[in-house]
Simulated scan of single mutants.
Amino acid sequence: MSSAPAQPINVPAGAQTATVAAGCFWGVEHMFRRQFKSQGLYDARVGYIGGDEQNPGYRAVCSGRTGHAEALQVVYDPEKVSYRTLLEFFYKMHDPTTENRQGPDVGTQYRSAVFYHNAQQEKEAREVTDKVNKQWWKGAVTTEILPAGEWWDAEQYHQLYLDNNPGGYECPSHFLRSFPALGE
């Protein structure tokens, strides 16, 4: 079964979108929803981005042949949570030092990436990535920073997967790390 292009959700004017890939999207979605549910998160969707196949499905993406990453797209209120805060959380909740891998999950679909939606996001993504690479991950970050291309929602059974399957698989690399505040 193939996925479909993302359907716009009904959100207030001024909402912004952030898209990241950090391995298996089930745990990424679950962690972002828990962390930001009362801090301006309007929606979080899992899906596929960064590949060259139209209408990718889960099995095709997992084969590694489509070039897509399993990713999370959040729509948020920038008055309540900043893009920088979302990025810092992203770098704390997964291991950005293992190229095309998160724990036991291996393949390009599990890569670490920030997909920016405009020039300001690109600038912030590069700045935050540089800082976390120097201060937290000691030069080992392999995260890609790429323009957001076409987004494809994952199949419905992947949305809110860990809410609907409380004992479901969670990547062991997905946990919140304790790092000091980033310096300027």
Rank of each mutant, 00 (worst) to 15 (best):
S2A: 15
P5I: 01
Q7Y: 01
I9E: 11
I9R: 02
V11P: 00
V11I: 07
Q16A: 11
Q16F: 02
A18G: 02
V20N: 00
A21Q: 05
A21C: 03
G23W: 06
C24M: 04
W26M: 14
R33H: 06
R34G: 03
F36G: 00
S38C: 02
Q39A: 12
Q39E: 15
D43G: 05
V46C: 12
V46R: 08
G47V: 13
Y48D: 04
G51N: 05
D52Y: 14
D52L: 11
E53W: 07
E53D: 06
Q54H: 04
G57K: 02
A60L: 14
V61Q: 12
V61D: 09
C62S: 11
C62F: 03
R65N: 14
T66C: 00
G67M: 08
H68W: 06
E70P: 00
A71I: 09
Q73R: 12
V75C: 09
D77M: 05
P78C: 06
V81R: 00
V81G: 00
S82P: 00
Y83R: 02
T85V: 04
L86M: 09
E88N: 12
F89H: 14
M93P: 01
M93L: 11
H94N: 15
D95Q: 04
T97F: 12
T98M: 05
R101G: 10
R101V: 09
G103L: 07
G103S: 01
P104G: 08
V106H: 06
T108K: 14
R111F: 02
S112N: 00
F115E: 03
F115D: 05
F115M: 06
H117E: 08
A119S: 14
Q120W: 12
Q121E: 13
K123M: 12
E124T: 13
E124W: 08
A125P: 02
R126K: 10
E127C: 01
E127S: 04
K131I: 10
K131Q: 14
V132R: 05
N133E: 12
K134F: 06
W136S: 04
W136D: 09
K138I: 07
K138M: 09
G139E: 13
T142I: 02
T142E: 08
E144C: 08
I145V: 15
G149C: 10
G149P: 06
E150S: 04
Y157I: 05
H158C: 09
H158F: 15
N165H: 15
P166D: 08
G168V: 04
Y169D: 12
C171N: 11
F175I: 05
L176H: 09
R177Q: 03
S178R: 10
F179P: 00
F179D: 02
F179L: 04
P180V: 10
L182H: 11
G183Y: 13
